[in-house]
């Protein structure tokens, strides 16, 4: 069953040229899809459409069978967890525990149920030891994991990630890849880290100037260096020939 359906979606920010131009695709339940493309290709814009933070100006978007619109925004947001590019935009409560609890508490959970939910999310992201720390004193990598926990605690059916590996050191990145692999939900990830895409996404959608120029298996997407270059991308490191 398709969980995310884009049908000829176009969008332009006020007074600018189109950031999304007639974008169509559909994503099945439990798929993991990478959205790649050069800077300004429209990746973040696309992701914000899936999360009900922006709405299509032309075309339609369906999330779990319900059209995404201002009227249905509550439905969309309860289905999708959005992990922002900058974790500083997400974390603001006095402690990590409370920050992770913020989402599920908004969904109406209280008491023990809430506590279990938070503990589970902290465990999933290996951040249990951070629970009592104030989030603004964590390292960038730790903040990233906590912001992921904050979204997982809401148990959304679909997860949307904007540049999850940006600013991570190799070990933190490896850690994130492992966590990523353990997730069951439908995942949509924008990234410049094509190695990451190879590792955790079986499917890749390539955007160029707001248009879908490729949609297929990740291995296939990165198989042709010339074609990648025409999309403004470079071969993943592990596929580059050593001179």
């Amino acid at each position: 069953m398709s969980t995310v359906v884009f049908h000829s979606v176009s969008f332009a920010y006020d007074g600018h040229k189109r950031a999304l131009d007639s974008v169509s695709f559909d994503i099945d339940a439990n798929e993991s899809v990478a959205i790649v493309g050069a800077n300004g290709a429209g990746k973040s814009t696309l992701l914000q459409h899936t999360a009900g933070l922006l709405f299509a100006q032309e075309g339609t978007i369906e999330i779990n069978g319900v059209p995404s619109s201002k009227q249905n925004v509550a439905h969309v947001r309860s289905n999708i967890g959005f992990v922002f590019q900058d974790p500083n935009d997400m974390l603001f409560m006095p402690t990590v525990f409370e920050d992770v609890a913020f989402g599920p508490a908004n969904l109406g959970l209280t008491g023990n149920e809430l506590k279990l939910r938070v503990e589970k999310a902290l465990q999933q992201t290996h951040t249990t030891e951070l629970a009592e720390r104030p989030p603004h004193h964590l390292s960038g990598g730790q903040k990233r994991l906590v912001s992921l926990a904050a979204v997982l605690a809401m148990e959304p059916k679909i997860l949307a990630f904007d540049e999850p590996t940006a600013h991570l050191d190799p070990r933190a990145r490896r850690n994130l890849i492992n966590i990523f692999r353990s997730l069951q939900q439908t995942r949509i990830t924008t990234t410049h880290d094509l190695d990451f895409a190879l590792d955790v996404c079986e499917r890749t959608i390539v955007l160029s100037e707001g248009r879908v120029v490729f949609d297929g298996s990740t291995a296939n997407a990165f198989s042709n260096a010339q074609r990648l270059e025409s999309w403004g991308l470079e071969l993943p490191l592990r596929m580059q020939k050593k001179d």
Binding site: L53, M90, F97, F102, A105, N106, V151
Partner: peptide, 17 residues
């Protein structure tokens, strides 16, 4: 930040843990 808060179901209430 406000968008991030609404994305996590914020409805003008800070929930109490």
């Amino acid at each position: 930040i406000h968008t991030a808060m609404t994305a996590r179901g914020f409805q003008n209430n800070l929930p109490l843990i």
